[in-house]
Amino acid sequence: MSELKDLIARSRWSATHASANGTAKVPPTVADLADIASVVRKNILVMTTAVNSGHPGGSLSATDALVTLYFKYLRYRPSEPAWPSRDRFVMSKAHASPVVYAVLAEAGFFPREELLTFRRIDSRIQGHTHIKTPGVEFSGGSLGQGLSFGLGIALAARLDGAAHRTWVMLGDGECDEGQVWEAAMSAAHYRVDNITAIVDRNNGQNDRHTNEAMGLEPFADKWRAFGWEAIECDGHDIASLAAAYDTALAVKGKPAIVIAKTVKGKGVSFMENNMAFHGKAATMDELRQAFDEIDAAMRRVAV
């Protein structure tokens, strides 16, 4: 446990630039974002290994999309999580809570050390995201409900004339749920353009690959048929993600969805595309190997 405490990572950007209220910060460069993503990956692994449970696979796949979102797009105040003008992020696939907590800690919502209380009794950071965690907007755990929740927030903002945006991340397996498509229909019907959905298209779910469990293709065309602007991108390339988010933000009069093509377990060779790590933590030995791989990948980026 104390060994794991020493393994908790911290990005060079947050060490120097993150300010307490999040408003006067120096925006991170693309290199900074890559560094933050590697830190988030490490902390996902540390927190799940520390408690020997949790969902690393779908956390690692969502890392780059969330880091790009939180450190380049979202407006928020870590010291004032309920700031009324904050943008809202809804994690509909709430089992991927480790990535949310690692990102929120990096953004300054709570101390990184608290990541080691993940899934432990009396903790603020629960197995599935719950609003008792500073920065968490949605109590999840039953898949398929987050897009509807986000729509409620987006339409309330419209009623209030408020400028904040709502972003919702869905799993691809989650899109098996009928409610996702009910929400999709409603968003188009009400021409909601202050919401952006992101699908972590990692081709995996609990038991199997998505194409074996329940065919989703033609996936982007389904969203288009439901009245959405659908934008596909490389979910592990920050520039590609940013371009997709920019395109989505420019869409007016209808909702937009970014389908981020990702790899489940991204960044850790033995977790990549391996459904066994959907809901299983790495051992200590595996954790060391994973850290080496993440460091090596960072050195390649730096060159």
């Binding site: 898949l143 398929g144 397996g173 989650e174 098996d176 749920e177 009928g178 779910q205 609990n206 038991d207 199997r208 998505t210 469990a213 329940m214």
Partner: peptide
């Protein structure tokens, strides 16, 4: 509904694929 490896149903599904239906994450269906 995509939890067959966790509920115990997996063994039946392996032996009797023709009598097994994984609906994905779609419990109402």
């Amino acid at each position: 509904a995509d939890l067959n490896k966790s509920t115990g149903a997996w063994a039946f599904m392996q032996e009797f694929p023709g009598r097994s239906f994984d609906l994905g994450i779609a419990e109402q269906n």
